[in-house]
């Protein structure tokens, strides 16, 4: 599997570290009903068989956090973008 980092280009998967597919936004455990939403955030997973967005970090490269759109049934990668959406491609 190879991942095309928007900053560094096409690189081997060894250079990347996987964080996970879900829980992009950490809920506030102090909010109303926060205990249940925080439990869901920590423990429960959709675990979809299909195209998902997931967090990888280019730990042996530019150290950017990336959102990789990948099909869990085939490992085919459809899209890679910076997790920080404000950052411009290649900047």
């Amino acid at each position: 599997m190879r991942i095309t980092c928007p900053y560094c280009g096409d690189r081997d998967v060894r250079e990347f570290h996987y964080r996970g597919a879900e829980g992009f936004n950490r809920p506030d455990p102090e909010a109303a009903g926060g205990e249940q939403t925080f439990l869901d955030y920590v423990y429960l997973r959709e675990n979809a068989a299909g195209v998902i967005d997931e967090h990888w970090v280019h730990v042996s490269g530019c150290r950017s956090w990336l959102v990789v759109t990948r099909d869990t049934r085939t490992h085919h990668i459809e899209n890679v973008r910076f997790a920080n959406g404000d950052r411009q491609q290649g900047s």
Binding site: V13, N47, A49, E54, T72, R73, T74, H75
Partner: peptide
């Protein structure tokens, strides 16, 4: 990494 592909890298 999450996978249903039954093959690794």
């Amino acid at each position: 990494y999450n996978s249903y592909a039954a093959r690794g890298n």
